[in-house]
């Protein structure tokens, strides 16, 4: 309860100021893939942001960049926060671009192995 409340307050505050961070439009998905690996995001979320037992699904369709930025910077859940000192806005925007570039998966009904 407390955790969620604190997070929501942070989110509200941060959305107001986050327009100063680098716009996601200038971001680069190829560089983002490298940053995603170099900063250890892959460790809990999988190389393709698919998620699993250790971390949530991030792709396809990651949350909007502003909320993404606020969450990654300030998380007080199982997700360790990555402040600017250790992950620049530019790298984070690239990571977001990489995750946004991942195509949607197939419908499971079209994969025979998932229908046996």
């Amino acid at each position: 309860m407390e955790t969620t409340l604190r997070y929501l307050l942070l989110l509200a505050a941060a959305v107001l100021i986050s327009f100063t961070s680098r716009p996601a439009a200038a971001a680069d998905a190829v560089k983002g893939k490298i940053a995603f690996e170099k900063n250890g995001c892959w460790q809990c979320h999988g190389y393709e942001g698919q998620g699993g037992a250790a971390g949530k699904t991030l792709a396809p369709k990651p949350m909007a960049y502003e909320a993404f930025n606020v969450f990654v910077r300030n998380s007080n859940t199982q997700m360790p926060p990555y402040p600017k000192q250790i992950l620049s806005d530019a790298d984070l925007a690239d990571i977001h671009a990489y995750l946004s570039s991942i195509p949607a998966p197939k419908d499971y009904k079209t994969i025979p192995l998932l229908n046996q």
Binding site: G46, Q50, G51, G52, T57, P105, K106, L113, L114
Partner: peptide
């Protein structure tokens, strides 16, 4: 099952794919 489709064709191989190919 839908969650298992995420990263289905990825390399290295996704754990869902590994497990279902084995099954």
């Amino acid at each position: 099952k839908q969650a298992a489709t995420l990263g289905w064709d990825a390399s290295p191989i996704s754990t869902a794919r590994l497990v279902m190919e084995t099954y």
